[in-house]
Nucleic acid binder design. Structure first.
Length: 803
RNA sequence: GCCGGUAUGUCGGAAUUGGCAGACGAGACAGACUCAAAAUCUGUUGUCCGCAAGGGCGUGUGGGUUCGAGUCCCACUACCGGCACCA
């Protein structure tokens, strides 16, 4: 058969779509299987060669499951709200909706050319009002349950553009666009109380099949720590509460640090003598990101509050109070007690400001030279009745004591912060809230959803930091749904995370106007059986969508506590030079060029063969030729075909082993070795000089998830079976035929390989060792020596230790 | 900096989880076919010593455990992902 990919690929893509063989069945008695990839953001650059890595991998899984008799849901959609589209629209004076439509059309045609078995009848788009109606509905439910609230938060503010910037738009403390200074400005923002779910987001990781490294990332991000709050009083009679994970070291606290934003500072401004210096420091700190501030390597800075001191509740000692930017207002209480002897950051600060270092846990180095932070081995000293206790026991005892005296309490803290949900942008879902001067924040009634984005001429940011929507006075001015008085709409929009936090539910029932999905559809399809995505999404997106799903579970909208039963992740595809692909580096590979030159099947094979799926792999335009040759050799088999429904005896072992390996490798994401096994098998077939029709049928079925077009073509031309190769039955194997009768065993002397021999697979230990000793090579090596030990690993090796 | 990864021939990678390091593919070299080239086919290809038989060395670095370590332990180095308004 002549292999002309340009001719055959569009033909099969059309036949599949016309026959609808990849459409998930709505009412089916078959078992279901839901495979999911992260839906793409339709960027202006078009599809990246990284996208098909994940899509092809789960396409292989989806296709195999169909062949195994499952009703498979493998959907696709567009995560189309977002900053780059909006910025492009502003720059080029086109509506973001038009930009999005154009980008989606391009992505769609690129994806369709790859022959991925998506169910296109369920395509969704987060910017479609019929979709974001339900994003808004979920927000209203969160609001109703007290999980959405407003709070003053710091945002990045460009002093020249006069607009709020995303972190990504701040480069080295200046605005990416104009290069002006960026400061932190306080604004009232919508927040979602994800912290209310912190414990469950950790504990329910036990219910799901995620890689350990992903679970570890989630746990570390949530950052549960147990410790205590301790109330210090000040010399002015005020109270300062600190959070500490080491309450056992309370006697070693030699000073206190509060964050530059701590409310206590303005409260005490009349008492603090060096207020000018303090204000200066606050301004400097406002310019830094949390990331810069907590960097341990950098020099510690701070200002001592002159005129006020704190009093240690356990020993009445007066200690100085500093402000320093290494303490964050957003974690704990925004104030810490500093124990330089047993905390590295405090130690560095104490050295710099020449503060006393008091050892309270013995067992480590000299605390004047280095902080001793190990909790497992130390014994308490210099701490009154805690003396002699272990760190663990001391923690318990001091917390008991603090609780009794009302000066503290046990406290669990999370690093996880509530989710800042407001964006001062146009291209996002409007937050469906009306602000009324007498009723406060009032939800838009459900029957008025979707609250559509107004069609406007200009979506440039306003110069006071409000969303562009604030300028649409007709849209903004409305009546309060509760009391009917004049009121104003919320003008902030939702972040891109919103639409992507629940999209997998919409696929189950994408055209439903009555609910985000029907209970029947949810009960049948939930949860997602296998979700694959990038490592770069394992903290935020995964956490946000698990949070929304848990909330929907609590209000009985969805039937399962976790959205994804299994999560896997793929490595990035890098440029040929081993660096991340980017326009500026000039190392971008366009998938269209590859499909055009080599065909979609070769592209798919290569993306799977390129390396370990879970690791990053550099693109190589040479290696792709090997995959093309493999596809051609597969076509070449048609010329070698002979009659016969069975596998010939000399190839039986090879076939059964390959069926087993390909099946297992797909389940374990080892696509590269699955393809290698198919390549080895085709080499064996060529070596035999011919292929029976039965052998070709099995080979074609095994190959079809990887290279579906060429498989379909051979299936059709050679009349290998009825219907489509894509939905034929997945081949089965016989375990007994996967083991050889005679196997090669390695003989080592003192751990070095000295001989290899063929032995029957069923041989016992003594006969195997006797056979080994009988070999001339081995005889020569052990002759005259004492045998100390003989190790026999069945069907692998024999090691003779001789002296 | 913190959290999570990764490191094997010229290159991408493989190694049944502690048991033959380098499967499969690319590249290179040699040969066949060809007027020639491409394509295709056959062979060689970690490295050092040796005519050969054979032997030494070899999985980022340094140490350790073991009959046996790419795989386990300790200490490092380099690179990659995430760090909350990119998604």
């Amino acid at each position: 058969m002549k292999y002309d990919h340009k001719q055959i690929e569009p033909v099969w893509q059309k036949k599949w779509e016309d026959a609808g063989i990849f459409h998930a069945e709505a009412n089916s008695s078959k078992p279901k299987y839901y495979t999911l990839i992260e839906f793409p953001y339709p960027s202006g650059q078009g599809l990246h060669v990284g996208h098909p890595r994940s899509y092809t991998a789960l396409d292989i899984v989806a296709r195999k499951r169909r062949m195994q008799g499952y009703n498979v849901l493998y959907p696709i959609g567009w995560d189309a709200f977002g900053l780059p589209t909006e910025n492009f629209a502003i720059k080029n004076h086109v509506h973001p909706r038009e930009v999005t439509a154009k980008n989606v059309a391009r992505f769609k045609s690129q994806l369709q050319a790859l022959g991925i078995s998506f169910d296109w009848s369920r395509e969704i788009n987060t910017t479609d009002p019929k979709y974001y109606k339900w994003t808004q509905w979920i927000f209203l439910k969160l609001f109703e349950h007290g999980l959405a609230y407003k709070k003053e938060m710091a945002v990045n503010w460009c002093t020249s553009c006069k607009c709020v910037l995303a972190n990504e738009e701040v480069v080295n403390g200046v605005c990416e666009r104009c290069g002006s200074e960026v400061v932190r400005k306080v604004k009232s923002q919508w927040m979602l109380k994800i912290t209310a779910y912190a414990d469950r987001l950790i504990s329910d990781l036990d219910l799901v099949n995620y890689p350990e490294r992903v679970k570890a990332q989630q746990k570390n991000w949530i950052g549960r720590s147990t410790g205590a709050e301790v109330d210090f009083t000040t010399t002015t009679g005020d109270m300062l509460t600190v959070y500490t994970t080491r309450p056992d070291t309370l006697f070693g606290a030699t000073y206190m640090v509060i964050s530059p934003e701590h409310p206590m500072i303005s409260k005490l401004s009349s008492v603090i003598k060096n207020m000018d210096e303090v204000r200066q420091y606050q301004e400097a700190a406002a310019r830094k990101s949390d990331f810069e501030r907590t960097e341990v390597a950098k020099d510690k800075t701070g200002v001592r509050l002159d005129g006020v001191e704190a009093i240690n509740p356990v020993n009445g000692k007066q200690i100085p109070i500093f402000i320093s930017d290494y303490v964050l207002v957003s974690y704990g209480t925004g104030a810490i007690m500093a124990v330089p002897a047993h905390d590295t950051r405090d130690w560095e600060f104490a050295k710099k400001f020449d503060l006393p270092i008091i050892e309270v846990v013995k067992g480590g180095q000299d605390v004047q030279k280095e902080a001793f932070t190990d909790c497992a081995t130390g014994i308490l000293v210099n701490s009154d009745d805690l003396n002699g206790l272990s760190v663990e026991d001391a923690k318990k005892k001091i917390i008991e004591k603090l609780t009794e005296t009302g000066k503290g309490r046990a406290k669990v803290n999370f690093k996880l912060r509530d989710w800042v949900f407001s964006r001062q942008r146009y291209w996002g879902e409007p937050i469906p809230i009306v602000h009324c001067s007498c009723c406060g924040a009032v939800p838009v009634p459900e029957n008025e959803l979707p609250l559509e984005l107004p069609d406007v001429e200009s979506y440039e940011p306003t110069d006071n930091g409000e969303s562009p929507l604030a300028k649409m006075t007709e849209w903004v001015n409305t009546k309060c749904p509760k009391c009917g008085a004049d009121a104003k709409r919320e003008t902030d929009t939702m972040p891109q995370w919103a639409g992507s936090s629940w999209y997998f539910l919409r696929y189950m029932d994408p055209h439903n106007d009555e609910a985000l999905a029907s209970p029947e559809a949810l009960n049948y399809w939930a949860p997602v059986d296998w979700y694959n995505g990038g490592m770069e999404h394992t903290t935020l997106h995964l956490l946000y969508s698990r949070f929304w799903h848990k909330f929907l579970y609590d209000i009985k909208v969805v039937p399962t506590p976790e959205p994804y039963a299994k999560r896997t992740s793929h490595g990035m595809i890098l440029g040929e030079n081993g660096e991340k692909m980017s326009k500026s580096r000039g190392n971008v590979v366009n998938p269209d060029d590859i499909v055009n030159e080599y065909g979609a099947d070769t592209m798919r094979l290569f993306e799977m063969f390129i390396g370990d799926f879970e690791n990053a792999a550099p693109w190589n335009s040479n290696s792709i030729k090997g995959c093309r040759r493999f596809a051609e050799r597969f076509c070449g088999l048609t010329a070698l075909m002979i009659d016969g429904d069975n596998i010939r005896p000399e190839l039986e072992g090879a076939f059964h082993k390959t069926i087993k390996k390909v099946g297992e490798d797909i389940e374990n994401l080892k696509f590269n070795t699955a393809i290698a096994a198919l390549m080895s098998l085709i080499n064996d077939i060529y070596a035999s000089g011919s292929v029976t029709k039965g052998e070709l049928k099995i080979f074609t079925a095994l190959l079809s998830p990887f290279a579906p077009h060429v498989a379909e073509q051979v299936w059709d031309e050679c009349k290998l079976g009825d219907g489509f190769a894509s939905v034929t039955e997945w081949p089965s194997y016989d375990e007994n035929k996967c083991v050889d009768d005679e196997i090669q065993i390695v003989v080592q002397v003192n751990g070095k390989v000295r001989d290899k021999m063929m032995i029957p697979a069923q041989i016992d230990r003594d006969s195997a060792i006797a056979a080994a000793k009988n070999s001339d090579k081995i005889k020569a090596l052990i002759d005259g020596k004492t045998i100390i030990k003989e190790i026999y690993v069945p069907s692998k090796l024999i090691n003779i230790v001789a002296k």
